[in-house]
Design a protein around this nucleic acid. Sequence first.
DNA 1: ACATAATGTCAAGCTTGCTTTACATAATAA
DNA 2: TTATTATGTAAAGCAAGCTTGACATTATGT
Lengths: 69, 69
Amino acid sequence: MKNRLRELRERGSLTQEDLAARVGVSRQTIISLERGKYNPSLILAHKLARVFGLMIEDVFLLEDEKEDE
Amino acid sequence: MKNRLRELRERGSLTQEDLAARVGVSRQTIISLERGKYNPSLILAHKLARVFGLMIEDVFLLEDEKEDE
DNA sequence: ACATAATGTCAAGCTTGCTTTACATAATAA
DNA sequence: TTATTATGTAAAGCAAGCTTGACATTATGT
């Protein structure tokens, strides 16, 4: 699952801990997400997208998924 | 988690089983989703949105989430 | 009446998202 | 050096997404 989280977070000068707090998850969850380790819940994806003022599909690159690469 | 799955599925004359097969989940999962029972994974939400040619946010109504009501 | 298709419920269990704790590494700064 | 901040890793465990199977209900059709 590729995504633009790291890029967007750095662009907004947020730490992983800041972002985690904003969306109500642990820092570990943000780390794993940035590294493409898993498929988040829809609600979490939505909360993250809202932090950056984007649509979910603009944050998470979802076309032709196979595995996590 | 409210959504328009039932409406969209019926509009497309698909059975729950058809839809389940299209997105690779069990029929039970579609039933539970239509009844707003849970928060699907992002990939599943995306596959469902694509079946209907819509954006995720057009299928799942995500603003001001509290609990499943 | 009988059959079949579509939807729904319940329950047990597997899988994985997410948490928590603890520790490691690198960067910046006094 | 010492301290602090930000990031990363690993492992154990909890919680929830999703599966499977069995059975009930309603509708449609012959």
